[in-house]
Amino acid sequence: MISELLFFMEVLVAGLLSGTMYSLVALGFVLIYKASSTFNFAQGAMVFFAVLSFVGLMEFGIPFSVAFVLTIFLMIAVGLATERLVLRPLMNQSEDTLLMATIGLGFVLEGLAQAVWGVEVRRLDLGIKDSPIPWIADNLQLFISALDVTAGLVATTMIIGLTLLFKYTKIGLGLRSVADDAGAASSIGIPLKHIMLLVWSAAGVVALVAGMMWGARAGVQFALIDLALKALPVLIIGGFSSIPGAIIGGLLIGAVEKILEVYIGPYFGGGIEGWAPYVLAIFFLLYRPEGLFGEKIIRRV
């Protein structure tokens, strides 16, 4: 009985921790959704592009910290190019058009990354072991990976940081204004292109961090792009425009999918965590379309 409970705890903890990894990816989506009400299909490709470039630079013998800073600059350059070449020409187009544009952007980044750095799977060593923390394993009989804990801390820090940025800074106020009504924001002198550049750069940096965490665990490789698909149910549940929603959604998806997989999966022949989150997401779409923390759709009757 006790071991059953312990096992459940372990499943839960593992789920919550892998949930924070989803949150990291979802965060990038939220940033862009907040500013342009568009689901950025290129986010997965941005994760791939960012971390592949980072590892690629390190292969040239550039030290970790320098490569990190260089990649951040690279992602800002990507943001700049996106604003100039994609967003500005499409200004005032429908959100569908923007969505299509992000799909195209995703392909471009994906192709570019593979063309420049090649298709080999690379190892990324952050110096944090993806193995159980010995003290916890010995004393609590819980196997918790040091990398997971680090990812959790990084995700939490970023979420707190971004929440503070949005809530209490002038830039944040500008961002939220643009998200609500870009036209009105521009009428009072908030420069849209700066905001867009900022958001895309921030999303790029978030993509880099997410990519580093995932890359350290699973290798830097093409499959990282598919993570974007995992972020979708997280966003539906957490709310597309909510930063805290991204973490709660991630935790929820992580925990629920693990518990379902372990306890119900065997009856379905396993592999249900591939689709279970989407089923959960559909329930949310039916009963709470704005997600847990999404901004209520304000409609005055």
Partner: peptide, 21 residues
């Protein structure tokens, strides 16, 4: 602008502060 376009999800005060951007 026409149509009372304020930032619906921001508070009244945040709206006004945004004007000083």
């Amino acid at each position: 602008l026409e149509g009372r376009r304020c930032f619906g999800h921001l508070t009244v005060e945040e709206n006004i502060i945004a004007g000083a951007y």
